[in-house]
Design a binder for these strands. Structure first.
Length: 103
DNA sequence: TCCTTGACGGAGA
DNA sequence: ATCTCCGCCAAGG
């Protein structure tokens, strides 16, 4: 019924401002997909590496990057966020009270 | 067609 | 804070 879900997700993702982050669940909501947070994850997974979408601004509800630390994508996402001024605590978590995007 | 698998999340215990 | 147990939904085997 929702083969157009990816488009809705891309559209919502494009609105996330520089220096801010959103959670998978939040993005699902913004895209009108209810609680389909997992769908957002598997959709982002399919993005080409040269995508100009800010996929790195999407983290999980605990403020952490959803990749194992030994996964190459972890550092890739981390450095991109740091470059935008998004800070990480000693626990490897982003302070959502400060960096979560509130539309 | 049925079953499993996820870049997930929230409620309980 | 940690661990389970469900809900969600598209994809692939």
């Amino acid at each position: 019924m929702n083969a157009a879900a990816p488009e809705a997700i891309y559209q919502a993702l494009q609105q996330v401002p520089h220096g801010k982050v959103v959670t998978y669940g939040q993005l699902a909501r913004l895209a009108g997909l209810g609680r389909a947070a997992r769908l957002v994850g598997s959709t982002l997974r399919k993005l080409p590496k040269d995508s100009r979408l800010p996929w790195y601004r999407v983290i999980n509800a605990q403020g952490k990057i959803s990749f194992p630390e030994d996964h190459p994508g972890y550092q890739r996402q981390r450095s991109r966020l740091l470059k935008e001024g998004v800070c990480f605590g000693n626990n490897g978590k982003v302070d959502l009270k400060v960096f979560l995007w509130r539309p």
